[in-house]
Simulated scan of single mutants.
Amino acid sequence: MKLPEPFTYFVDRSLGREVVVQALRAAGEQVHAHDDLFPQNTPDTTWLTDVGQRGWWS
């Protein structure tokens, strides 16, 4: 499977929104954190669908 260009990471709540996100950004990667886009209580089926439709990788 070929990954979409540009590659975008999505970091879910289990990894937090600081350490991993900041490390990826420092490495020049495109990254979005769950809590920057969704309320914390958003059901997995909702955010997983949205992230998948955007072509981001979690």
Rank of each mutant, 00 (worst) to 15 (best):
S14F: 03
V19P: 00
P39S: 04
E5H: 12
V19S: 08
E5M: 08
L48Q: 14
V11C: 08
S14M: 11
P39E: 07
S58R: 09
Y9A: 11
P4H: 03
V20A: 08
V11E: 01
F38R: 03
T8E: 11
T45F: 12
V19L: 13
R17P: 00
D36R: 09
L24S: 03
F7Q: 01
R54A: 14
Q22R: 15
E18S: 14
V19Q: 08
G52H: 12
P6W: 05
D36F: 09
F10R: 01
D12V: 02
H34I: 01
D36P: 05
Q22P: 00
L24K: 05
V19C: 01
L24F: 09
P6E: 03
T49W: 12
V51T: 08
W57K: 09
V19M: 10
F38E: 04
M1W: 03
M1K: 07
G55P: 12
G52P: 10
M1N: 05
Q53N: 15
L48C: 11
Q22L: 10
E29H: 15
G52N: 15
L48K: 14
A27D: 14
W57Y: 14
T8A: 09
V11H: 02
P4Q: 05
R17A: 06
T45P: 00
D50H: 13
S14L: 01
Q40C: 04
Q30H: 13
F38W: 13
F38S: 03
P39R: 03
Q53R: 15
H32V: 13
Q30E: 11
L24P: 11
A27W: 12
A33T: 02
R17W: 09
R17E: 07
V31W: 05
V51N: 08
E29G: 02
R54K: 15
S58E: 01
V51A: 08
H32K: 14
L3C: 02
G55R: 07
L37S: 04
R13T: 05
L24A: 04
P4V: 02
L24M: 06
D44E: 14
E18I: 10
T49E: 15
D35E: 14
Q30F: 10
S14Q: 09
E5C: 06
T8N: 07
Q30R: 15
G28R: 06
W56Y: 15
A23C: 07
V31D: 05
V20M: 09
T8P: 00
Y9G: 00
D44H: 07
A23H: 11
A27M: 14
G52C: 10
H32W: 14
R25T: 07
E18V: 13
E18F: 11
L3Q: 05
